[in-house]
Design a protein around this nucleic acid. Structure first.
Length: 112
DNA sequence: GTGGTGACTGCCA
DNA sequence: ATGGCAGCCACCA
């Protein structure tokens, strides 16, 4: 399918491909240098969509500290643990185990 | 049209 | 290890 002219839609398309039990970083979803757009796009969702927004974490494997309210962060962690993703004592996800590794370039062509 | 803002990342001290 | 700075782009007032 052709790339969406709508940047947000392209980002959502990539996130929607993240399989259950895996996580992806903002930089992985977006072109390096444009990771902010991903976070901004997700903030627009605010959990009112079918997009698995909780599978997106920052480059350090942590729940991104949102601008206000930590409730969403707690919910994200619960959802990830429910999918079998574990956190270490520091509250980080071991990316070497759970990071999404797309096998085909087409997997993320939506935004690249 | 202009400017401020943000769920980020990578580099450097 | 932590903390600061710059680059980045779309959205909204």
């Amino acid at each position: 399918m052709p790339p969406s002219p709508d940047t947000y839609q392209a980002i959502y398309a990539v996130i929607a491909r993240i399989p259950e039990g895996s996580v992806a970083t903002y930089g992985q979803v977006a072109v390096p240098g444009r990771a902010r757009l991903v976070g901004y796009a997700l903030s627009a969702l605010a959990g009112r969509s079918a997009i698995p927004w909780h599978r997106v974490v920052n480059a350090q494997g942590r729940i991104s500290p949102r601008s206000c309210g930590s409730d969403a962060g707690l919910e994200q962690r619960l959802r990830l643990e429910h999918e079998g993703i574990s956190f270490d004592a520091s509250g980080r996800i071991p990316l070497e185990r759970f990071l999404w590794r797309p096998q085909f370039a087409e997997e993320n062509q939506g935004y690249f």
